[in-house]
Amino acid sequence: MNATNKVAIVTGSATGTGAAIAMALGKKGYNVLINYTKSKNEAEETAKAVSALGVDTLLFQGDVSKDEDCRAMAQAAVDKWGRIDALVNNAGRTKFVPHQNLDDLDAQDFHDIYAVNTIGPFQMTRACVPYLKESGKGRIVMISSVAGTHGHGSSLAYVASKGGLNSMTKGLARTLGPEITVNAICPGMIETRWLREGWGDENYEKNRVAMTKRVPLAKVSQPEDIADAVLWFITGGDLVTGELLIVDGGMHLVS
């Protein structure tokens, strides 16, 4: 039985961090719209797991870089449940390029990454704002990165896109209060398939071991660690908006 009847949209929630966020919200009684672009089978598995918690789910295939998909996603949630209480902008994109390899990035790479990481969250926010305001206690959480605060990351294009997202978080927080809070989570390395595929198995393991040895808490983030932080912003933090919360085991202290 759904204890809250509240509704959350989590973009990019078929796998990894997005799936963990969907599960965490389901455990709190939120009905969850699970968004994916290509990972249909994984999205269906995530929806099944969230539904098993006693809440409703809705699968939506859509690309956040397309405004029409963002508007349709918000409308689908409202058509099914009549409300939106929380939006988690988790969908992300990158290209793995060492920062010193300037010639391996071009303008199109920047456009493609910004379209998902920066423009996508803006478009999703714009589509959901009317309904978040109606909820009386709307919550928006951006999944950003320490790439946007400290300049480390999979590529300079990714770093720039997350820096833009962080600045936009503050601007939206100033604009959308008092009805809606807007905050961002800035993870460091997270143990996910996304990083393993991007780095390759050997480099992934090398980076994971090195990171574990370097960070003060001697731990690389799991998707559930990020989900816990998201949950706090959504279910608590009534007087917190415009914040960038670093969740990286202390990596930013030694980098």
Rank of each mutant, 00 (worst) to 15 (best):
E202S: 14
R196L: 02
F110G: 03
S167L: 13
I21Q: 09
L253E: 06
D238Y: 12
N183R: 08
L239C: 09
F60L: 01
W81R: 14
I21L: 05
T181K: 15
G62P: 06
Y36N: 04
D112Y: 05
V141Q: 07
A218V: 01
G136W: 12
L105A: 05
D225R: 13
V220H: 10
N117L: 04
K137T: 11
A86G: 05
V220A: 01
S221V: 02
N35K: 07
W232T: 05
P216F: 06
P130W: 13
H152W: 15
H152V: 13
G12C: 05
V254G: 00
D201V: 12
L33I: 12
D228R: 13
I119L: 13
C186K: 03
Y131G: 02
P178K: 13
A74P: 06
L58M: 10
S161K: 07
T57F: 07
D67L: 05
G54Q: 09
V247C: 01
S51V: 00
D225P: 10
L165D: 04
P187M: 00
D104F: 12
P187T: 05
F110S: 03
R126A: 09
V254W: 02
A218Q: 15
M168R: 10
G148I: 01
F122D: 00
L245V: 02
S39N: 15
V97W: 09
I226P: 11
T175V: 00
Y114K: 01
G249M: 01
E134A: 15
V55Q: 03
Y114C: 09
M142R: 07
S65I: 04
T212L: 01
K206L: 09
V141M: 08
G177Y: 10
Y204T: 03
A20V: 05
G120M: 01
K213W: 08
H150L: 00
T181W: 08
C186W: 04
T15L: 11
K213S: 13
D112H: 11
W81F: 14
G62M: 02
V97D: 07
G200S: 11
D112G: 08
M124K: 09
G188K: 00
T125N: 05
E45Q: 15
S39D: 13
L231H: 10
E202V: 13
H252K: 03
G249T: 02
F122R: 06
L244W: 10
S161V: 03
A14K: 04
V230D: 03
R214Y: 02
R174C: 00
K28F: 01
N183D: 06
N207F: 12
F60I: 04
S13A: 14
S145Y: 06
S13C: 08
L132V: 05
T241S: 14
N207R: 11
A74C: 05
Y158G: 02
E134Q: 15
D248S: 00
R71C: 00
S255Q: 11
G250E: 01
S145R: 05
S135E: 08
C70R: 06
T17S: 07
F96Q: 12
T57E: 04
T118I: 02
L217P: 03
T94Q: 11
A3P: 13
D85P: 13
L105K: 10
A184F: 07
A77T: 10
T149K: 15
G12Q: 07
I190P: 08
D79F: 11
C186F: 06
R93E: 06
V10F: 10
F233N: 00
R93G: 01
A22L: 01
